[in-house]
Design a protein around this nucleic acid. Structure first.
Length: 893
RNA sequence: GGGCGGAUAGCUCAGCUGGAAGAGCAUCGGCCUUACAAGCCGAGGGUCGCAGGUUCGAGCCCUGUUCCGCCUACCA
């Protein structure tokens, strides 16, 4: 094995191996026959336009941990990879490309443009998939899908046609969020709200009868041209006289009514609200209840249209605003302009300001779908962490109909045709064979809808469309519903809730049993990573520098539930050290495993030394920990449990203790320890494999005596209840305490590391068996504490001039006469005694507190009393040892 | 406006059902001890945001409060 771990080569090699061997392609038959339980995950499909970012890296890591773990648990695991066509985003990318060539999409025409996008997709769509490979994701590449591929398009059409048939899809003229730049409608949740500094203009609207005027407040004076009414609160005494009268609309000159509606806030502005139904969501709603006319004055490109007075026609809305203000001022109708902070809707794709706009659009009537989706949580689908349930409910409870039509070209074209002659609307699966003579009623020419569907419409079907629906495939039968959906909270609404709606409606089963919402990955300062801020940590760069396993482990270690991850490169670099540590521990093991050990584990366990019994005991505990942590999505606990076990226990203690046997002459001992070493290492590789697939697989493949070189297909390590040994744990803790005490004395008193020292231990007062632990492992204490001679037994006493400590009642003496300045040891013991005093005071206070003995459970009281006795014993002994030392010092002086 | 999350060692964070405050990194001291200096050994460092309350006992439960962060909403 090379001295240092070289990830690039290892990762490339195994990735190729896994894909060539279809290691992660399951067979549905093994589920349908009942041989295996299914476990499936559909990947949140990244945008084809996208490049892998840290959010993806985290998302993929967590899913991969679950998939690899479930394979170990004997499940038939299907992880479906794929990409999303991301309508607006992708179209924008290609349009930008065209712009560089000085062209617009209209120059190409619809078909040529779409072809162009496909070309682009073919060229760049694989990039993100290759990046998924580099993460080590154990997806089934034979199941890869794209939201716009043939099968999925069929699913989309089936859903659309059926929902239309059920009356859950309708078409109509409504006000929608309109992006002038993308030139399309957007759903409510595609609008982001950003605070903006704006102005509040107060404008006089004279009453038509000359009895005065009303003053309205607005942030968008140009919309005045489309006003159809002024509304006041019905109980606002200031204006009751005006209700029912008319005002003269400035600049336009026509009369509009003053209406009353409780929606108006008396406190805000002047209490008078101008109503522009065509350009404001709320005004639209008011107009509907009051039967007001809708007059659009801004067109779909953001310019004033023919409904505006001639002077303003053709102006952009900002230019128009300036002119309107100017003209109002000239007429003396402008009262004042004040600064005003408010939030403004922006397009989530291009950040342009959203213009409410009236147009003919398609909608999904979400009420019934949302109700079912709501009721399925948490009984059918559990959300982890559960706090997100509330957010999920909140959204579903307040949901409005979903605008699904988009005025772009890249996407699923709406399967509806209108007869140019009689106006008949056709919604059906198949394209009418001959558009020229298609109308069933009159034979008139049919024209397909120009609009395409919202990208999220196809995403909503992802959990079943990817499995082959509407065909009744084996895959669908075997793997639907999926086990878990792993995603960030930012698309809980966009995606998760809609998959729930569609899954329940079309499969009559929820799409997943669990939803795991993971953190957002932020930068060091906790800011969102973004290209414009320049604080992006690119996962691929990190992989190149530190290896995939380091990156994965880092993300796992920080993936505590319900908390954002603040990531910095230093952390990844730090965990690379861990990968290297694992590599080196394997190198050590292999150097000592020239061949597979002959002994069975049972044989190795006969009369096994403490080190072997202890590490096997800990291994059993770690198996339990890793399993429960994985099942409960406590990813950080998986990482931390394994880190501690491998580094602080296996490497720091076990390997050091095993060296004696491994380097020794006793062949039986050597073989037994080799067996334990190999067992622990190999099973640890299995446990760690879901988190670090590459380094573990590479090590596994060179372990002696292992026939199946494919680590990804190994079962979870068997449990060995016979290896659990609380006694070994206790003995080891004692042993570590003694070694630690000796080491502390050495370092604190500045004794040269090379200097070997004698050691005396009095085991009186320690637990039964303590004596045996120490004498049985005296050679190890000598090795680890640099001791040249030891004398261990009950009642033993060292010279007064010793460095001393008390461990679990046993007194430790390190004779140091002539070696060091004992004043330092006196001072050190003072410090130790001080600590003990503090603990004793706290404990005594607790025990003597009124009511403690009576109210606390008996076992707690007993435990506390035992602790007290232990502390008092230690303090007494240590104080006495210090006195002896002092007396030795005064004698010398 | 409504909701959610956070506040614990210098930094980043663990801490499950309340029972003597933990890890990693950083810092300090000592070591090239034949797997690993990407390493080993040792040490220091915290009134667990603030104020109350419940309890024999609170980082953990309750109430209030202050700062951060996020989500959501129709204040023109």
């Amino acid at each position: 094995m090379p001295k240092g771990y070289e990830p690039a080569d290892v990762e490339a090699r195994w990735n190729k191996h896994w894909e060539d061997n279809k290691t992660f392609s399951p067979n549905p038959a093994e589920v349908l026959s009942g041989e295996k339980q299914p476990y499936s995950i559909v990947i949140p499909p990244p945008n084809v336009t996208g490049a892998l970012h840290m959010g993806h890296a985290l998302n993929l890591t967590l899913q991969d941990i679950l998939c690899r773990f479930m394979r170990q648990q004997g499940k038939s695991v299907l992880w479906v990879p794929g990409t999303d066509h991301a309508g607006i985003a992708t179209q924008n990318v290609v349009e930008r490309q065209l712009k560089k060539e000085g062209k617009k999409r209209d120059d190409l025409g619809r078909e040529a443009f779409i072809e162009r996008v496909w070309d682009w997709k073919k060229e760049y769509g694989d990039r993100i998939l290759n990046q998924i490979r580099r993460m080590g994701a154990s997806v089934d590449w034979t199941s890869e899908r794209f939201t716009l591929d043939e099968g999925l398009s069929k699913a989309v059409r089936e859903v659309f046609v059926r929902l239309y048939g059920e009356g859950l899809i309708y078409k109509g003229n409504y006000i929608v969020n309109w992006c002038n730049r993308c030139h399309t409608a957007l759903a409510d949740d595609e609008v982001e709200h950003a605070p903006k500094k704006g102005k509040l203009y107060r404008i006089k609207y004279p009453l038509a009868d000359g009895s005065g005027e009303l003053i309205v407040a607005t942030t968008r004076p140009e919309t005045l041209l489309g006003d159809v009414a002024v509304a006041v609160h019905p109980e606002d005494e200031r204006y009751t006289h005006a209700i029912g009268k008319a005002v003269v609309l400035p600049l336009v000159g026509k009369q509009i009514p003053v209406i009353a509606d409780a929606y108006v806030d008396k406190e805000f502005g002047t209490g008078c609200l101008k109503i522009t139904p065509a350009h404001d969501m709320n005004d639209w709603a008011l107009a509907r209840t009051h039967n007001l006319e809708v007059i659009p004055v801004i067109d779909d490109t953001g310019h004033m249209n023919e409904n505006a007075p001639e002077a303003y026609r053709g102006l952009s809305k900002t230019a128009c605003r300036d002119k309107v203000v100017e003209d109002l001022e000239a007429l003396g109708l402008l009262v004042d302009i004040a600064d005003h902070d408010h939030s403004v809707g922006e397009c989530y794709r291009c950040k342009s300001v959203i213009e409410p706009h009236v147009s003919e659009q398609w909608f999904v009537k979400v009420g019934p779908l949302a109700k079912a989706a709501r009721e399925a949580v948490p009984s059918q689908t559990q959300i982890f962490p559960a706090q997100w349930e509330k957010t999920y409910y909140e959204w579903l409870d307040n949901i409005r109909d979903w605008c699904i039509s988009r005025q772009i070209w890249w996407g699923h074209r709406i399967p509806a045709w209108t007869c140019q002659a009689c106006g008949e609307l056709l919604v059906q699966m198949e394209d009418p064979a001959d558009l020229a003579h298609g109308c069933a009623k009159c034979g008139g020419a049919l024209k397909q809808e120009d609009d395409v569907l919202d990208t999220w419409f196809s995403s909503a079907l992802w959990p079943f469309s990817t499995l082959g629906w509407p065909e009744k495939t084996d895959k669908l039968k075997a793997y639907y519903p999926t086990g878990v959906l792993v995603t960030g909270f930012d698309i809980l609404f966009f995606w998760v809730a809609r998959m729930m709606m569609m899954g329940i409606h079309f499969q009559e089963q929820v799409p997943f049993h669990h939803v795991y919402i993971h953190a957002l990955v932020r930068d060091e300062q906790g800011k969102k990573m973004s290209k414009s801020t320049g604080n992006v940590i690119d996962p691929l760069v990190m992989i190149d520098k530190y290896g995939t396993d380091s990156l994965r482990f880092t993300l796992t270690a920080f993936a505590a539930m319900g908390r954002d991850i603040k990531l910095s490169e230093k952390r990844i670099e730090g965990y690379r050290h861990f990968v290297n540590k694992i590599w080196n521990s394997a190198r050590f093991a292999l150097m000592n495993l020239p061949e597979a050990p002959k002994a069975t584990l049972a044989q190795a366990l006969e009369n096994a030394p403490l080190a072997n019994r202890w590490i096997l005991h800990r291994l059993e505990e770690v198996k339990d920990e890793v399993e429960s942590a994985t099942l409960e999505y406590r990813f950080n606990d998986i990482a931390q449990g394994l880190y501690k076990f491998i580094w602080n226990e296996f490497c720091d203690w076990y390997v050091e203790m095993a060296k004696g046997d491994l380097y020794g002459e006793d062949e039986a001992k050597k073989d037994a320890t080799r067996k334990v070493l190999l067992t622990v290492l190999s099973e640890t590789m299995v446990l760690l494999h879901p988190v670090m697939p590459f380094v573990t697989q590479e090590i596994w493949s060179v372990l002696p005596g292992i026939t199946d070189k494919e680590l990804a297909c190994q079962p979870y390590p068997v449990r060995r209840p016979e290896c659990k040994s609380p006694q070994a744990a206790r003995d080891m803790a004692f042993f570590q305490g003694v070694v630690g005490a000796v080491r502390t004395i050495r370092t604190e008193l500045c004794i040269e590391p090379a200097k070997k020292l004698p050691l005396i231990i009095d085991t009186d007062g320690a637990f039964d068996g303590a004596q045996a632990v120490l004498t049985g492992n005296a050679h190890l204490i000598a090795q680890l504490g640099r001791i040249d001679s030891s004398d261990i037994g009950p009642g033993k006493t060292g010279p007064r001039a010793s460095g001393t400590a008390v461990v679990e009642g046993a007194r430790i003496f390190v004779p140091l006469k002539g070696i060091v300045d004992f004043n330092a040891e006196v001072a050190r013991l003072d410090k130790e005694l001080g600590k003990l005093d503090k603990q004793l005071a706290a404990l005594k206070g607790k025990l003597s507190a009124p009511g403690f003995a009576g109210n606390a459970p008996a076992d707690i009281v007993a435990a506390e009393q035992e602790k007290l006795a232990g502390l008092e014993d230690a303090k007494g002994k240590l104080a006495e040892l210090q006195e002896r030392l002092k007396s030795a010092l005064t004698e010398e002086a």
